[in-house]
Design a protein around this nucleic acid. Structure first.
Lengths: 338, 338
DNA sequence: CTGAAAGCGCTTACAG
DNA sequence: CTGAAAGCGCTTACAG
């Protein structure tokens, strides 16, 4: 396999000229550049990664630590992993995958050995040991998700409060005066990430700000529970006319089935918005308005922030990505008199 | 950050002695070793990855190319990715993740730049350009899945024919004389991987060998189709008393529901086996016998074969992993007289 | 059992 | 606009 000396020899220049020509870090004469390009092509030369890593200041590799916990929804998880890898490539970075059982040891290993330039931390829980490790390692890192203690960390996440606010606004603007939030099972609020709480709080706060009634219920995943919970919610007086669902895909479907089973139609009898789904709600029956959690958004920003840290100019921060509303026709004005 | 010279100085030895002490590639005197260990601990020394890669013959990184196609079942995909990463760590290897859009370019890049020692190819389709690329690159590689042309390649996969044979044997041994296979939708057999065909062929061949009747139907994913397809299959004369399902999770559940809806009970009226599920069938109602596709099995073997290629001793081959039967009580003798 | 030294393939001041 | 050379941090023959 050809190395930089081969290219230099064939092109009749020095290796430093070859290096500069390839990196573009200094201007190269027209003819020289052409001869080098030709030699590179002729020899099918590609710079050796190890040589580059050792001489340069960058490895051009990020570690990605992505635990797969039992409560992880695999399709979303996969989407985040791919979004990070895709974003990294835009900056000429590769992604080294660290698994759950290697979480802390692996981070230690790849950063101490300088295998990676930085770390992207996925699926951050409230008390995540990886957050503490990243802090103590002092290595460039970006977390996707917000831990309890964000001191000294760079975090990126969807603005779940604003997302909930957006849902409330949409419903209130359409004329609804009584809203309900169907949330995850209690277990989800007790441990794990904090975004379900942030969504709930954003919902209740915005409803209060707008002066409308709002209820919040936690719903177990199985269809019978969903039916019962929905019945309880809709039998309230005054009955909510706008419902926001923040739960997993199955619960969304079960909610829609339960609504249909009650003889109600969306959006004529009831307006429904999907909270922050990681799945597509436009194919549901009926299609559901949504404020989706878009992996590419947070992941791209996280990678960007990691890259910027290498140039040494990023203050610790929590950056919240603005939510976007996707209209699929599941919100309408409430029935007159309801 | 400390380097090998620091360790050598603190320990009062040469850097080569430090290197050998850490690699264990030559015997080191008792006291010397202790002094080195102490220096390493004191300085929190960890060898620099780039230095190691450049001087040594290994990068200790494998590339993992894992496309996420539209017909990919994310949980299974994720499980394979994690199984590769976990297996790699056992050999002190890290895994670099290559995404779909980088499939061939990425493979070219990481192997030409010698960033990786080898490649693990996941989710191999019948005519997979990555297979051709791996062949032409001549880089150590192990494919998980079997492409149409395996010339010069090292492939690992579950023995789907044997898996189907196992299912047939189990049913025939229990006394069944008429079997049915409910397979994937036609689209799956037309393109993509070849394992559905291998399972189907294994099923039909073993049934013929054992001298029992066997039918094969392709089933669309939606519940109504599943009901119709099941009805068609069970109304045959003589009606099958043993059914093997090779489809995705939703279809399995729909099949069980359709069976229950017909007033039939498993295994008393009908014996049912899940083909090669990537999901857990022991929590189904009723729990289903299965011959599962176990990611760790093929992935561990693939990593092993990739590692062995670095020592230069692996002939091209297709290695099929033996299937295992998991009994959950969904197979019984057919009703007398049926 | 241990050390001095070459060399892996680059990048980047330094010099012209 | 270009080159000679040092140096990144290791591994590994070579030598004793």
């Amino acid at each position: 396999m050809a190395n930089i000396h081969d290219v230099a020899r064939v092109a009749g220049v020095s290796i430093s000229t070859v290096s500069y020509a390839l990196s573009g870090k200094r201007p190269i004469g027209e003819k020289t550049r052409r001869r080098i390009d030709e030699a590179v092509r002729e020899l099918d030369y590609m710079p050796n990664a190890a040589g580059r890593m050792l001489a340069g200041t960058r490895t051009r590799i990020f570690a990605l630590t992505a635990p797969l916990r039992s409560d992880t929804y695999a399709p979303a998880h996969m989407a985040f992993v791919l979004a990070v890898a895709t974003a990294a490539r835009k900056y000429d970075y590769d992604v080294l995958l660290l698994t759950e059982d290697e979480a802390t040891d692996g981070l230690h290993r790849v950063s101490s050995s300088r295998l990676v330039d930085g770390i992207i931390v996925l699926d951050v829980s409230l008390h995540d040991e990886r957050a503490d490790l990243v802090r103590s390692l002092g290595v460039p890192a970006a977390l996707i998700g917000v831990p309890a203690d964000t001191e000294g960390l760079v975090c990126v996440d969807l603005d779940f409060e604003a997302a909930a606010g957006l849902a409330v606004d949409r419903l209130v603007d359409a004329g609804h005066r009584s809203l309900a939030l169907l949330g995850h099972p209690p277990m989800v609020y007790e441990r794990g990430s904090n975004f379900p709480m942030r969504f709930r709080d954003g919902f209740l706060r915005r409803a209060a700000d707008r002066g409308v009634r709002a209820s919040f219920s936690m719903v177990e995943k199985d269809a019978p529970h969903v039916r019962t919970a929905l019945a309880g919610v809709l039998d309230a007086d005054p009955a909510p006319t706008g419902v926001v669902v923040h739960a997993d895909e199955g619960v969304h479907k079960a909610v829609l089935e339960a609504i249909a089973a009650r003889g109600l139609s969306v959006p004529d009898d009831l307006s429904v918005i999907a909270g922050v789904p990681t799945f597509d709600t436009s194919g549901f029956t009926p299609p559901l308005d949504a404020i989706p959690l878009i992996p590419a958004d947070s992941c791209t920003r996280a990678v960007e922030l990691a890259v910027q840290q290498l140039d040494g100019t990023v203050e610790p921060r929590v950056e919240l990505v603005a939510p976007k509303y996707r209209d699929h026709g599941s919100v309408a004005a409430p029935r007159p008199g309801s």
